[in-house]
Design a protein around this nucleic acid. Structure first.
Length: 459
DNA sequence: CTAGGGTTAG
């Protein structure tokens, strides 16, 4: 009888620890653990596994791994799920080495990996941009005769999408459906996210309808993804509508949805609404992570308050958070907006030496220079660098047109297409109208022909 | 307790 009670209490303890970890309140989770022990409720392997997941998500893999020592002290052996959770933590952090280490350690302890171990490893390879290795793991699962689960397919579909195999992912999805596979809400979230990145706004609506017809309940992720898609297509009204629906159905705000909404409100200049949402974000008492700080730093930058942005950065760093690629990019953009190009350039160099991909930051720098009228310096930077995409060209073309330097704009636009990059219809129109206005209709005509020919060569 | 979502430039 006594054991049954204790078992039940441990279950309750686990539920409360899990809920605190989910809301990133690790200190409170630790306090619950201590309170439990004081009352004679001992944590079990599940409690520690939950903590490991929490530490991996909020702090990082190392912090999660540290919990293993505490388990040993408490006389509890790590199990399959312990290692699977650690592999997931390593994957979240993008550390393939740690993920493989955990697999080794698990095998060394005589624990047999299950379908989840392989799922996670496959996911890690996909995340690191190694789809061939990921597919190798998938074949290994089949070879070892391990029973697949739905997550295996979800990870496969998601990985194919993220690595650019869009058609293969869609084909796999439809194939599975034909074989009687019923997609889960997770599957729909994956598809929705992929369509969102492809800017296929109508596809999202169709998916939403499909979900309703199948009677599957959307979750917070579904709403957040759909919202982001609306905002990305500048449909702020529709996006906010989805947000209100989400709220009225009792879905709680979380950091993910807050970041999406605040970023959209800032971008569309809804200052008051943004402030209200930020106040809420801070009030709910979650431990803000680096993405949340990035959102807030970006908000300060857009208000023209560079100093406040740097202060907030100090707060984030004092909490042990590391700047990521977004933080650096947002700061460089902010420096440019403040006209401080010297510091911006130095920060960009700093970012390069740290091994970050600086494409977006470099685009911010070039765009900032253009807007401030230093277009020739921008061209110099552009020519000296091999980092360029369609945005880089678009900034230059757009601003050259403003200065009526249409011939150079036309040249750049053509070399953009010839590099296999897409161009904005508006840029194309701008240039050809400009050439016409220069009084040389023949040039404009020739430009249009060249554009058409270059596009043909793209395929 | 282990898959899916957020933050940057034209």
């Amino acid at each position: 009888m006594r054991r049954m009670c204790l078992g039940l209490s441990t279950k309750l303890l686990n539920i409360s620890v899990a809920s605190l970890c989910r809301t990133r309140q690790l200190e409170k989770a630790e306090a619950a653990l201590i309170d439990g022990i004081r009352l004679g409720v001992l944590p079990d392997v599940v409690t520690y596994n939950i903590l490991i997941t929490g530490y991996c998500q909020v702090v990082g893999f190392e912090a999660g791994y540290h919990v293993i020592h505490r388990m040993k002290e408490a006389g509890i052996n790590p199990n399959l799920i312990t290692y699977n959770s650690l592999m997931a933590g390593a994957t979240r952090q993008g550390s393939l080495a740690c993920c493989l280490n955990m697999l080794d350690e698990m095998l060394g302890r005589g624990i047999d990996p299950d379908v989840w171990s392989y799922n996670t490893l496959m996911h890690c390879y996909f995340k690191m941009g190694r789809p061939d290795d990921a597919y190798r793991i998938f074949r290994e699962i089949l070879l070892k005769n391990i029973t697949l689960c739905q997550a295996t397919y979800n990870i496969l579909i998601n990985g194919l999408f993220k690595n650019g195999y869009i058609k293969d992912a869609l084909m796999l999805f439809r194939d599975l459906q034909r074989q009687g596979y019923v997609p889960q809400i997770v599957t729909y979230n994956i598809l929705m996210n992929a369509l969102c990145k492809l800017k296929r706004w109508k596809g999202i609506i169709r998916l939403f309808e499909e979900i309703r017809e199948l009677g599957i309940a959307p979750n917070a992720i579904t709403y957040t993804t759909a919202m982001k898609c609306c905002f990305g297509s500048r449909r702020y009204k529709e996006g906010l509508q989805i947000f209100f629906e989400m709220k009225s159905r009792g879905y709680a705000y979380d950091l993910f949805s807050c970041c999406t909404i605040v970023a959209a409100l800032v971008k569309s200049g809804r200052r008051l609404a943004a402030e209200r949402c930020i106040a809420h974000m801070i009030k709910i008492g979650y431990d803000l992570d680096i993405a949340s700080y990035n959102t807030l730093i970006n908000w300060h930058i857009n208000e023209g308050k560079l100093e406040k942005a740097y202060n907030l950065l100090g707060v984030a760093e004092s909490r042990g958070l590391d700047c990521d690629i977004y933080t650096h990019t947002i700061l460089i953009d902010g420096l440019c907006k403040a006209g401080n190009f010297d510091v911006a350039e130095r920060h960009l160099d700093h970012m390069k030496t740290m091994g970050f991909n600086c494409l977006v930051a470099s685009n911010c720098f070039i765009n900032g220079l253009c807007k401030a009228g230093y277009i020739d310096y921008a061209l110099q930077v552009f020519n000296a660098s091999d980092m360029r995409d369609s945005c880089t060209y678009s900034s230059l073309v757009n601003n050259l047109c403003k200065q009526r330097r249409y011939r150079l704009a036309a040249q750049l636009l053509l070399s953009c297409i010839r590099s296999g990059l897409k161009v904005l219809k508006s840029d194309e129109k701008n240039v050809s109208q400009g050439l016409t206005r220069l009084g040389t209709k023949r040039d404009a005509k020739r430009f249009k022909l060249q554009v058409r020919r270059s596009k043909l060569l793209q395929y």
